[in-house]
Amino acid sequence: MASGGPIGSVLVTGANRGIGLELVKRFLAKANPPKVVFATCRDPEGPRAQELRALASKHPNLAILQLETTDPKSIQAAAKKAEARLGGAGLNLLINNAGIMPACTLESATSEHMLDVYNTNLVGPMLVTKEFLPLLRKAAHASVHKGMGCGKATIINMSTILGSIEKAPEHYALFPVVSYRCSKAALNMLTKLQSMGFKEEGILCVAIHPGWVKTDLGTEKADLTVEESVKGIMDVLCNLSEKQHGILVTWEGKTLPW
Results as ranks from 00 to 15, higher is better:
Ala186Thr: 11
Arg48Leu: 15
Cys205Met: 04
Leu135Cys: 08
Leu94Met: 09
Leu115Arg: 10
Gly149Tyr: 05
Leu91Pro: 06
Met234Pro: 06
Ser183Arg: 01
Gly149Glu: 01
Leu187Cys: 06
Asn119Trp: 00
Val37Lys: 14
Thr215Ser: 11
Ala84Ser: 09
Thr129Glu: 06
Asn157Pro: 09
Val144Cys: 02
Asp43Gln: 02
Ile100Leu: 07
Lys73Thr: 13
Val226Asn: 02
Gln66Gly: 01
Arg181Leu: 08
Lys184Glu: 05
Glu220Pro: 02
Ala82Arg: 11
Met101Tyr: 07
Thr13Ala: 09
Gln66Glu: 15
Gln50Leu: 02
Gly211Val: 00
Ala207Phe: 12
Thr160Asp: 06
Thr154Gly: 05
Met158Asp: 03
Gly202His: 13
Gly87Ser: 11
Leu162Pro: 04
Ala186Lys: 04
Ser179Gly: 14
Asp223Gly: 00
Thr129Trp: 12
Thr215Trp: 00
Ser3Tyr: 02
Trp258Arg: 06
Ala54Arg: 12
Gly149Trp: 07
Tyr180Met: 03
Leu21Gln: 10
Pro169Trp: 04
Ala109Cys: 14
Thr13Met: 13
Pro72Gln: 14
Thr69His: 06
Val117His: 04
Asp235Ile: 09
Gln194Ala: 10
Cys238Gln: 08
Ile161Trp: 03
Arg42Gly: 05
Lys25Gly: 03
Ile165Met: 12
Gly18Tyr: 10
Glu45Thr: 14
Phe175Met: 01
Arg42Ser: 12
Ala168Leu: 09
Cys41Thr: 13
Cys205Gly: 03
Ala15Val: 01
Ala142Lys: 04
Gly5Tyr: 05
Glu131Cys: 14
Leu193Gly: 04
Pro125Lys: 09
Gly20Gln: 11
Gly88Tyr: 09
Phe132Thr: 00
Phe38Lys: 08
Leu93Trp: 06
Phe198Ser: 09
Met234Leu: 00
Glu201Lys: 09
Ala31Ile: 03
Ile208Arg: 01
Leu62His: 03
Ala15Pro: 08
Glu220Arg: 09
Leu94Phe: 06
Leu11Tyr: 09
Pro34Gly: 13
Ser159Ala: 12
Ala15Thr: 11
Ala56His: 10
Cys150Gly: 06
Glu170Lys: 03
Thr225Met: 02
Phe38Ile: 04
Ala49Leu: 12
Arg48Asp: 14
Ile64Pro: 03
Val249Gln: 03
Ala168Lys: 08
Asn61Ala: 15
Met189Lys: 07
Gly246Gln: 12
Lys254Glu: 14
Gly20Ser: 10
Ala39Cys: 09
Phe27Pro: 10
Pro34Val: 11
